[in-house]
C-alpha cells in the first residue's frame, strides 16, 4: 500500500486545534495524534492539550553541562595553581577560594550555555532537508498540520480538514 504525506494549511489556529482534537477523538480510525506534526509561524503551547504531552529533554543536558563546568572548573583551577607554585603570593594562599569561586561561576555558565545550545541543535530535529510539502506560508501566517498516512486514510483526512476550513491541502507520495 502506498504511503502518502498530507499537509493541511489553516488560516486560523483554532480551526487547526479543532481538527487535531477531532483526530484525537478518533474521527479517522487508525490515525492518532502521535502521527501529527504541527507547523506554525509562532509557538502554540496550547496545542499540547490535544496533541498530547511531548517531552523536552534539554534541561537535563543543561544541568549536566553546568555541573561539569562547576566540578571540572574547580579542579582545573586548583590543579593549575598547585603545579604553578611560583605564582604571586601577595600574602595569599596558593589555592584561594574566593577568586576561584568567581571563575568557577563563570565556567558553570559557560559550559551550561554551550551544552544547552548543542543539545538544542541535536534534539530539536534541525539540519534536515525541508519536507517536500513545506510551504512558505507556514513562516508567514498559516498553520500546517502534517501527517504521513496509508492510502486508505487519505480521503477521510481530507474531508476532516475541509470540514475545518483548511485553506489549502497538499499531498504527495512518500518514497519507499
Amino acid at each position: 500500500m502506498k504511503r502518502y504525506s498530507i499537509m493541511a494549511l489553516f488560516g486560523d489556529f483554532d480551526e487547526a486545534f479543532e481538527a487535531i482534537a477531532d483526530i484525537r477523538h478518533a474521527a479517522v480510525p487508525g490515525i492518532t495524534t502521535d502521527d501529527v506534526t504541527l507547523k506554525s509561524p509562532i509557538e502554540h503551547p496550547e496545542i499540547e492539550e490535544v496533541l498530547g504531552e511531548r517531552p523536552v529533554h534539554i534541561q537535563k543536558f543543561t544541568l549536566g553541562g553546568a555541573l561539569f563546568g562547576l566540578i571540572f572548573g574547580f579542579f582545573f583551577l586548583a590543579s593549575a595553581q598547585a603545579t604553578f607554585l611560583v605564582q604571586p603570593q601577595g600574602g595569599k594562599p596558593v589555592i584561594p577560594l574566593p577568586s576561584n569561586f568567581v571563575l568557577v561561576y563563570e565556567m558553570l555558565i559557560f559550559f551550561g550555555v554551550w551544552v544547552t545550545f548543542f543539545s538544542f541543535l541535536f534534539l530539536s530535529g534541525l539540519f534536515r532537508k525541508p519536507h517536500p510539502l513545506y510551504s512558505e506560508k507556514v513562516s508567514l501566517d498559516q498553520i500546517g498540520v502534517l501527517l504521513e498516512v496509508d492510502e486508505d486514510k487519505l480521503q477521510p483526512l481530507k474531508d476532516l480538514f475541509t470540514k475545518h476550513k483548511a485553506v489549502e491541502i497538499r499531498e504527495g507520495v512518500l518514497q519507499q
Binding site: E43, R54, I58, V113, S119, F120, G125, L126, F127, R128
Partner: peptide, 20 residues
C-alpha cells in the same frame, strides 16, 4: 539550520531560550 516551525522545534526552542 533547517528550521521549519514544527511543534518539536518550537518546544525545544522555547526551552532553550528560557534556559539561556
Amino acid at each position: 539550520l533547517g528550521w521549519t516551525g514544527t511543534d518539536r522545534q518550537w518546544r525545544n526552542f522555547r526551552k532553550t531560550y528560557l534556559l539561556m
